[in-house]
Design a binder for these strands. Structure first.
Lengths: 219, 219
DNA sequence: GTCTATAGTAAGATAGAC
DNA sequence: GTCTATCTTACTATAGAC
C-alpha cells in the first residue's frame, strides 16, 4: 500500500465516521481500524485529530471554492466594463456546490455540515481559513449592492453560507426525506431564496427567509 | 443546601453546559464545579450522565407535553360530537411550546435542540420516551385527515417536530439573529407552515416546506 | 513510511467514611 | 445526602525500532 493510499484511506474513513458520529465520538482508533491503517499514521500524515478534520473539510470544500473563484473571475470578465448582475454572482457561489456535491452521499454532507455547527469556536477556525479567499473575492457584492453597508453585506454573506449549511441538517426519520432532486431545480430554488435575502432592504430583516419559522424548540 | 437545591443546581448547570458545549464536551466535572456540588452527586441523583441529559430534557419538555395533552382534551371536548379542526389540533401542539419556551434563553433552546440531532441514535431513546404520550394522543390527526395513510400521518407529525427542532439551529454570527419576536406572531407563522405541510396531498412532497432550500452542504 | 509500545491525560463511575 | 479518594477505561499523541 502506497503512502498516498494510506492518506486517502484515512481521509475517506475519517470523513465518513466524523459525519456519522461527530468529531468527538469518532475516535482515531475507529478511523484507523476502519481504514485498516496504523494508528500512528494519522499523526504522521496529518499531525493531529483537529488537523485531520481540517484536511477532510479541505478536500471537499477546497475544489468547490476554487471553482467559485474561477466562475466569478469569468463572470467579471464577461460583464466588463459593467459589474456582473447580483444573481450571476450568487450563482457563481452556489453552482459549484450544487454540482460538485450532487453525487456525494447526503448523509455525509449532512454530517459534515453539522460538524461545522457542532463545535462552534473550534470549527470556526477551519471555516474562516477555508472561506478566506472566497469571502474576499465575493466582496464584489459590496459594489453590486451599494445600498448595503459592508457589515450588512458580511452578515448576509454569512447568512447565505449558513442557510446552505443549515439546510443540510435534515430531520425526522430517514425515509421521510425525499432524495433525488434535479440539480438545476435545486440550484434555482436555492438561488431564489438567497437572492431574496440579498435584495431585501437594509435592517428590519425579522420575518424573512429562514426565519420564517421562528426560533422554537425542543418539543 | 437541601437535596432539592442540589438536584436543581445540577440540572440548571447541566442544561446550560450541554447546550453550550454539546453532550460529549460538557464533562460531569465541569457541571458539578459550576453547580458547586460534589461530583458524586450526579450519580447519586441521576444515575449516569445519559440519565442526567434525560432529566434535563424531561424538565423542559415534560410540562409542555402535559399542556399539549390538556389542550387537546379540551378541544376534543368542545368540538363534540364533531372532531376538532386540523388547525385547532396543530395549535394544541404548538402553542404550549411557543408560550412556555418564550422566556427561555434562545441559546439554551438552540443548544438543546441541537443535542437531539447531534447524537442520533442515543438521543432517539430520550426523544421517543418524552413524546410517547403526545404522539399517541395526537393520532387523532389520522381521523381528521382520513385521506392520509397512517404512515403518512406519522411522517408528517415527525416532520412537524423536526421542523421545530430544525428551526432552533440558528446559523451565522450571533448578532445576525434578530431576537425578540411576538409570540403570537411566531405561533401564527409556525402554524401556517405546519398546517400547509399537513394539508398537502399525499405522496410527492419533494419541493415543499422546509425542503424549499434543498439539501446542500459544507460550503 | 510504517509499526509497536507506551506515555500522559481526562473522563465516567463507584466504594465507603461521615 | 454528601464527600474524598480511587478504579477503570478510553483517548490523543509520541518515541523509537524497523
Amino acid at each position: 500500500m502506497t503512502a498516498r493510499d494510506t492518506r486517502e484511506r484515512i481521509l475517506d474513513h475519517a470523513e465518513r465516521l466524523f459525519a456519522e458520529q461527530g468529531f468527538d465520538r469518532a475516535s482515531l482508533r475507529s478511523i484507523t481500524d476502519a481504514a485498516e491503517v496504523n494508528l500512528a499514521a494519522v499523526n504522521y500524515h496529518f499531525g493531529s485529530k483537529a488537523d485531520l478534520l481540517g484536511a477532510v473539510l479541505e478536500r471537499r470544500i477546497g475544489p468547490i471554492n476554487a471553482e467559485r473563484i474561477r466562475l466569478l473571475d469569468q463572470a467579471a470578465e464577461e460583464a466588463k466594463p459593467e459589474l456582473p448582475r447580483l444573481r450571476t454572482v450568487l450563482e457563481c457561489f452556489l453552482r459549484p456546490a450544487v454540482e460538485m456535491l450532487g453525487d456525494v452521499d447526503p448523509t455525509i454532507l449532512m454530517g459534515l455540515g453539522r460538524i461545522l455547527h457542532e463545535r462552534g469556536e473550534e470549527a470556526r477556525g477551519h471555516f474562516d481559513r477555508l472561506f478566506a479567499n472566497v469571502a474576499e473575492r465575493f466582496l464584489i457584492l459590496a459594489r453590486i449592492c451599494p445600498e448595503l453597508a459592508p457589515e450588512e453585506i458580511h452578515a448576509r454573506f454569512h447568512f447565505m453560507i449558513g442557510a446552505m449549511l443549515h439546510s443540510t441538517v435534515q430531520v425526522g426519520p430517514a425515509k421521510a426525506r425525499p432524495r433525488p432532486v434535479d440539480p438545476e431545480l435545486r440550484l434555482a430554488q436555492l438561488l431564489a431564496f438567497v437572492e431574496a435575502d440579498f435584495i431585501a432592504p437594509p435592517a428590519k430583516r425579522e420575518s424573512k427567509g429562514i426565519e420564517l419559522q421562528p426560533e422554537e424548540s425542543s418539543s
